[in-house]
């Protein structure tokens, strides 16, 4: 039972982490790149309109960081709960 309880707590933590990461994922792409693109396009950073930059460059960079961060975060979580292989 002990072990099952642990597995459930691990799973809940994992789900919380996933939700946080997916919120960021949504905000940088659908948010900044599509829904609020017109608003962000008022701002210019170097030669980029900000909304356009998110849609064509920023979202991709953010995705890369998200996947790396998730992999590292989960390695830590696996060790914390001692469920790693």
């Amino acid at each position: 039972m002990q072990q099952q309880d642990l597995a459930q707590r691990y799973w809940r933590r994992n789900q919380q982490i996933i939700i946080i990461y997916l919120i960021i994922w949504f905000l940088v792409s659908y948010g900044a790149g599509i829904l609020f693109v017109d608003y962000l396009n008022q701002y210019q950073v170097f030669g980029f309109k900000l909304g356009y930059w998110f849609a064509n460059q920023g979202s991709v960079l953010a995705f890369c960081m998200l996947t790396v961060a998730y992999a590292l975060r989960m390695n830590r979580l696996d060790n914390e709960f001692d469920v790693h292989e």
Binding site: Y21, W25, G33, Y52, A55, N56, S59, F63, T67, Y70
Partner: peptide, 20 residues
């Protein structure tokens, strides 16, 4: 800009793959 969906769509799918 109209084609941005390809850039975001074809890369963002990997976040879903990695997380879910």
């Amino acid at each position: 800009y109209d084609a941005s969906g390809y850039v975001m769509g074809w890369t963002g799918g990997y976040v879903l793959l990695a997380l879910l």
